[in-house]
């Protein structure tokens, strides 16, 4: 049976339209968001980066690309959460988006109504496994942690390759550690290793009598100066600016415990479209590449491959974790028991 060419052409056009029209519609819808965001003129981002240069670089690139100014309010995690809570309780809706740890978001959802459901954001589709957005938040970047060693004090053959190596008696009293009892990186590492290593790992580590401290930035330098040969846990990114010092990060073979930072839109955000556009921009390859080059693990596809050669071991590090909110009470209790 012969089919008329006109009919074939019409059918083809119809099929193509079926594919293209939704994409066009999506484009148009997103373009409307961009236009509305530009009309809003600014976005207020509450975050816990405390003015980190890589965060500032992303803000600058956003401002340059869209002409929308960013007001960044930098606070430490607990202060940030309390400020958002207090402002919203007082009916002062000043912030648009927040960038905060995933557990803090869990806590916000548990304790109140501070963030709104995540609106559609195209770049969410660009997240690389195992990362995915949920109803309220989307991963922004990941901060993995390893072991920092002083290369002058730790011989090549003694470099720990596994978390278990830290329990070797030769390191007794020689490990400087972020305090594992209160909330923070030390406790996050403790929780994650408790779940991922042998049941008695933390007990054996406690027998090594690690010396606790509470100043991560200075602690890495103390190791560099030779006060201690080993520091745990070392956030990769915090060592990226120690180039030239006799220190090295080791990523143990079991993997690197990590903390994940998420982005969310605050309830009654005064600039909701600008907030959406900001999140879209943050999940873009260029913004993620800035984070990758600062030795953090990008959550979007396409950035890790383009990272600087010296950042490569860190952007593709094997991860273990993260710590969850539900584990916290028991893990903090166990840490206090092992380190009275």
């Amino acid at each position: 049976m012969l089919v008329k060419p006109g009919i074939v052409r019409a059918a083809l056009i119809a099929c193509l339209a079926a594919f293209i029209m939704p994409a066009h519609a999506e484009d148009a819808a997103w373009q409307a968001v961009v236009t509305a965001a530009k009309k809003e003129g600014k976005v207020v981002v509450y975050n816990m980066t405390l003015g980190a240069p890589y965060f500032k670089e992303v803000l600058k690139s956003f401002e340059t690309k869209y002409g929308i100014s960013v007001e960044s309010l930098d606070l430490r995690a607990s202060e940030l959460a309390e400020r958002i809570r207090t402002e919203q309780a007082a009916g002062r809706y000043l912030g648009d988006a927040e960038m905060i740890s995933s557990t803090m978001i869990e806590e916000q959802l548990k304790n109140g109504d501070f963030i709104q459901k995540l609106p559609p954001i195209p770049n969410i589709a660009n997240l690389r496994p195992p990362f995915s957005a949920d109803e309220y938040s989307v991963p922004a970047f990941v901060q993995p942690m390893g072991i920092l060693i002083n290369t002058r004090l730790v011989k090549d053959e003694d470099v720990p390759k596994s978390w278990d190596d830290l329990t070797d008696p030769k390191w007794k009293g020689k490990i400087l550690s972020d305090d594992m009892r209160p909330l923070g990186s030390g406790n996050a590492m403790f929780s994650i290793l408790q779940k991922n290593m042998d049941a008695d790992f933390n007990m054996k580590l406690a027998e090594q009598k690690p010396v606790f401290s509470r100043d991560m930035r200075n602690d890495a330098r103390r190791v560099a100066r030779g006060e201690y040969p080993i520091y745990i846990p070392q956030i990769f990114a915090f060592a990226s600016d120690l180039k030239g010092l006799p220190v090295k990060i080791v990523i143990p073979r079991e993997g690197a415990p990590y903390a994940r930072m998420d982005l969310a839109v605050l309830k009654n955000a005064p600039h909701p479209n600008a907030a959406r556009l900001f999140i879209q921009h943050f999940l873009g390859v260029d913004a993620q590449l800035i984070y990758a080059n600062a030795w953090m693990l990008p959550v979007a596809a396409g950035a890790a491959e383009r990272a600087d050669p010296e950042a490569q071991p860190f952007v593709n590090a094997k991860l273990i974790g993260p710590a969850t909110l539900s584990d916290r009470p028991s893990m903090m209790g166990l840490a206090k028991k092992l380190y009275p």
């Binding site: 607990s78 202060e79 309390e82 806590e107 304790n111 923070g184 916290r328 903090m332």
Partner: peptide, 10 residues
Amino acid sequence: YDSINQRSPP
């Protein structure tokens, strides 16, 4: 400090 900044929830 711990009870405000290092507990969950504060």
